[in-house]
Structure formats: structure tokens, C-alpha cells
Design a binder for these strands. Structure first.
Lengths: 140, 140
DNA sequence: GACATTCTGGTAGTGAATTACTAAAATACT
DNA sequence: AGTATTTTAGTAATTCACTACCAGAATGTC
């Protein structure tokens, strides 16, 4: 992890897939269609199962099967996606707070926490529908 | 990783140790003194070795051995610490940029990147000496 | 010189996220 | 009915940061 800010791959896959589904709401998209990166299909498969379990997406098996948004994309906040996949969304704090950290304004109590709030607020405010407007097309 | 912002444990340990050393520049501090969290000493041991290798800290073995800042704390930027331990400091981007992401302003190209810059700028600007002023005391 | 202390360095174990593989269940087409 | 397609689900392999353990080297004390 060479960067202090990282969205888990699972969340990235989920958001990209959901945005794609929102942009093509009428069609049933299969895993292969939703795969943003070559080689990510196995992981995406697991991710989609969680989105189905969370009720955001419905799935159909078989020949012309695939995935479909189960609710309106403006009702899916990015925060919901994060929680569905990761369980919780925690803001960053000093890992030693209360257990030995002796700084009045610890780095991890200020900057890291500011950055986490920046992302947290955005994730709470933004829905899949908002992002779908930024979508450019099929991609391949 | 339930938070999108996380400073690696190794960097946290290093920063806390360096600040402590800056606050007590005259004394030689041993691993046990620098341990912020119970149980972190093994990891801290490896971390200190890297700080020594990076030339920020000098060490002495034996009975009254321990660690000592090798340079002025105002010459140690947090960014240097990060690089010494992690190798590189990368700003966050969409993991699929150029490999399938089809959003004009992808979440990971905007918000996550803003947050990473927030931290990156702070880490480039702040030195161990700056933080030493926030130090409250021995801690135990 | 013997001994306790402290860093050094290697190696192995653990847990979580990701990757990979496979058989099974559902569905559509012929 | 049979077959190809697609999701489902379980399990194993991989990777990486972190944890744990241990013998060895250096240094001060008696």
C-alpha cells in the first residue's frame, strides 16, 4: 500500500459495475460486461453476490441471464456500497489513541481524519445516479 | 481495512518514535521506551532498523544502548519517513484508469486523489520537529 | 572474564484481501 | 430431452503487512 488513501478493490469493482448498470438500465448485463479490468472477473463474481444479497441488484441465471439494478440508482449511496462490502465505514484515527499516543494533536487525529471525512462525506452524499451522468459509454 | 485512509502501522510506529526521540534529544531511548502500544515491540524493532539504515537514527547496542536521532528533527519530513519505510509515496488514482474505467471524472480520480494530496502535502510540509512541540510527556 | 542488557537479523506464523479453480444449479434455445 | 450459457457457492492458493520467536553480536557492569 504505497498510498495513504485506498479504496478496496471490491468497492471499486462494485461502484464501477453499478454505474455501468445505471447507465444501461434497460439491459441485463452479465459478468463479462461488467468486468472493468482483465482478470478481475473472479473477484467481481463474489462482489456481485454481495450486492445481490444487499438487495441493490437482482440476478438471473442461465442463457440470457445477468445482473440488473433492483432499486433506483439515486437510492444507492456510495456509502451503502462500502458498508455492504466491508461491513463498516470507519473514520481514521491514530491507531494508538488512548493506548500510548502522547501527542496533543496527533497526525492521525487531524490530517488523516480530515482526509477520511472528505471521503466519508462524499460517499454519503453521492449516489450511483450522480456518477452515471459521468459515464462515457461501453468502454469496449 | 474499514477506513479509506490508513497510515501503515510501520509509519505510525516510526513517527511516534521519532517524535519521542526529538522531545528527549539528550537521552538514549531503548526499544521499550519507544514502544507506543503494548505488543508492538517486535514490529518496532524492524522499523527502527530501517530508520537506522536510512540514516535518520543511530543506534548503540549493549547495556546502556538504544536509539538517538542522527540528524536534526527539523530535517526529517514525514514524507521521508514514509519513503524510508514504504519505498514510494503514491497518490491515489482509479485502479482501472486506462484499463477499462469509463468515467469522465472517476471517483478515484477526484475525491480519493484530493484526500491523498491533503495528506501528501501535509507529509511534505511537516517535520518531526513540528510534531515534537505537540508532545505531552513520557506517556508511562 | 563472566554476565546481563540491548540491538541485529533471520525465519516462521497469522490474518485479511485478492486470485484461481471447480462443480452445481438455473435458464433459454433447439 | 439435450445442450450451451450464466450465476452460485465452496474451497484452495497467493500476497502482503504484521506478529512472534530465537540465536547471535556488541557493549557496559561487576
Amino acid at each position: 500500500m504505497p498510498s495513504p488513501v485506498s479504496i478496496p478493490e471490491s468497492v471499486s469493482l462494485a461502484v464501477h459495475a453499478l454505474v455501468r448498470m445505471a447507465a444501461e438500465r434497460d439491459s441485463v448485463l452479465k459478468l463479462g460486461d461488467l468486468m472493468v479490468r482483465p482478470g478481475s472477473m473472479d473477484h467481481l463474481s463474489k462482489v456481485m453476490q454481495k450486492l445481490v444479497a444487499a438487495g441493490m441488484v437482482s440476478s438471473r441465471r442461465g442463457r440470457s441471464g445477468g445482473f440488473l439494478l433492483a432499486v433506483d440508482p439515486s437510492d444507492i449511496r456510495l456509502m451503502d456500497v462500502w458498508i455492504a462490502l466491508e461491513g463498516t465505514f470507519q473514520s481514521a484515527v491514530c491507531p494508538f489513541a488512548g493506548r500510548g499516543c502522547s501527542m496533543r494533536e496527533c497526525v492521525f487525529g487531524t490530517v488523516a481524519s480530515d482526509a477520511a471525512h472528505l471521503i466519508g462525506d462524499y460517499f454519503s452524499r453521492t449516489t450511483v445516479a450522480d456518477l452515471a451522468g459521468l459515464f462515457m459509454g461501453k468502454g469496449n
